[in-house]
Design a protein around this nucleic acid. Structure first.
Lengths: 226, 226
DNA sequence: GGCATTCTTCACGGAATCTTGACGGATCCT
DNA sequence: AGGATCCGTCAAGATTCCGTGAAGAATGCC
C-alpha cells in the first residue's frame, strides 16, 4: 500500500516507517501539517496516518480541510496521545475513520490500516463505527469506548440496521419492514426495543448517539459539537 | 532472535543478557514494567522474557495490557520465584505462553524460547489456538493450558469448526450444514454435542471460551476482561 | 461372528432469555 | 391549548437454551 505518515516526532516516525516498509508498504512522510496536507492533496494514498499534535497545522484542522476543501475520502487514521472523549469526538467529528492511542503496537497499526482500506474499498467492512461506538458484524461484539456491551438479538439487529444507514434518518416504516417483513407486530414493539437499545448504548454515556426525529423516524450519529 | 528482557534484578538481568548475547541473540532490557511495556509495543520482538515481580507494573498486568490493549501476540515467557498453582494459572490466564521457575539454568531458558518461537510461527497451519486452548489438526491433540483433553469425534469436529471461525459467531444453521450437510438430525443433536464439548473444554476451567449468542449461534473466543 | 465399548441420536422437564402487548405519563408540533 | 407522537415500565406469553438419561447405531476387540 501507499501510505502517508504525518508525524512530528522524528523517532516515532522513523519507527513506523521502518516497520511498515519492512512489511512491504511504500511510505511518504511529513513532519508538519502544511507539507502533510500538500502531499495528501497532490498524491493519491491508500490511507493516511495523522498525528493530532503538529506544528503549523494541527491534525483536526488538516483532516477537516482534507474532507471539506479537497473533497478527499481517503481513509484517515488518527494518532492521539491521550485517550479522552474530547479527542475521539473531535477526531470523528472532522471526518477521521479510526484512531489509535499512543503508545500502540506497530502490528495493530498495520492491522487497522488494512481494515480501513478494506472497508473503504468494496465490501462492507466487518466493523461498523459511529463515533466511539463500534459493532463487529462477524463477532457481534458491541463496544463503546473501552466498554463491551451486551444486547438482546432484536436490539442488536436494530442497531446494525441503524449503523449501516448512519447518518441517514430511517422512517419507522422502513425499520419495521427491515426487521419483520410485511407483518410487523401490532403493538409497536419497535419502541420497546429501541428503549432497550438506548438503555445499553446511550444511557450510561454522556454523549447520546441515538436520536428521534419526531414524526419521522430515528437516526444514529455523532451529535454536532455544542 | 530479537528478545526483550523485563527484569528488575540487575545481577540476574546482566547474567541472562550476557548468556543470550553470547549465543547470538539481540537483547533489549527494561528494569521496570512501564518502560518494558513501552518497548514491547513500540518494537517487534521474537519473544519477551517477563519477570512477575516488578516495580511500577507487575508482570501479570503488563502481559494483560500487551494482549488486550496492544493486541500483540508476541510469545511471552514468564519468570516466577515460586512454583505455585496460583502463579501458573494467573500467568496463563493473562496470556503468557510459558513460564519458568527461579532458579533456572540458562540453557533451559534458551531452549524454551526456541520452542516458543517455533510454536508461534508454525502455528498458522497446523495448530489452532484460542487463548490457552490449542488443537493440533494433524495429531488431533487438544490441549488447554497444561492439560491434554480427550474428545469424541463429533465434538472434536465441532471444536475445530468453531476454532477455525474464531472469533466469528457461527449461526446454528451454518454449523449444522458444515457438520451434517443438507440433512441434519431431527432433534438438535448439536446442543448435545456442544454440551459434551463444554463439559471437557470449559467446565473444569475458570475462564469460559464457548459462548452462546441467544437466537443466533455460537462462538469461541477469549472473553473480554470484565 | 459375537461381545463390549463408545459414540450418536432422540426425548423430556425445567430454567433462562427474549418478545410482545398494554398502560399512564411526558413531550413535541400546530 | 389540544392532539398526536413518543417514552418508561412491567408482566404475561413465546421462544430458545440447557442438563440429563436412555435407546439405537457404529466401532473395535477377541
Amino acid at each position: 500500500m501507499h501510505l502517508l505518515l504525518i508525524e512530528d516526532n522524528q523517532d516515532l516516525a522513523a519507527n513506523i516507517c521502518e516497520h511498515l516498509e519492512a512489511r512491504g508498504h511504500v511510505m511518504d512522510a511529513a513532519g508538519d501539517g502544511v507539507t502533510g496536507l500538500h502531499l495528501a492533496v497532490v498524491n493519491t494514498y491508500d490511507a493516511i496516518i495523522l498525528d493530532i499534535g503538529l506544528p503549523g497545522m494541527d491534525g483536526f484542522t488538516l483532516c477537516r480541510k482534507l474532507r471539506e476543501e479537497a473533497h478527499s475520502r481517503v481513509p484517515v487514521l488518527m494518532l492521539t496521545a491521550r485517550d479522552t472523549l474530547q479527542d475521539k469526538l473531535g477526531g470523528f467529528g472532522v471526518g477521521a475513520d479510526d484512531y489509535l492511542v499512543k503508545p500502540f503496537a506497530l502490528q495493530e497499526l498495520e492491522a487497522r490500516l488494512q481494515a480501513l482500506v478494506r472497508r473503504g474499498k468494496g465490501g462492507d467492512g466487518v466493523v461498523l463505527r459511529v463515533g466511539d461506538l463500534s459493532v463487529n458484524v462477524d463477532t457481534l461484539q458491541v463496544r463503546r469506548g473501552e466498554a463491551t456491551l451486551a444486547l438482546p438479538p432484536t436490539a442488536l439487529k436494530l442497531l446494525i440496521l441503524l449503523m449501516r444507514a448512519s447518518p441517514r434518518v430511517l422512517p419507522r416504516r422502513e425499520i419495521e419492514m427491515a426487521m419483520w417483513g410485511d407483518l410487523p407486530p401490532e403493538s409497536d414493539a419497535l419502541r420497546t426495543h429501541l428503549h432497550a437499545l438506548r438503555a445499553v448504548v446511550d444511557k450510561p454515556f454522556p454523549v447520546k448517539l441515538l436520536h428521534t426525529m419526531h414524526g419521522i423516524g430515528y437516526q444514529i450519529r455523532v451529535p454536532d459539537a455544542a
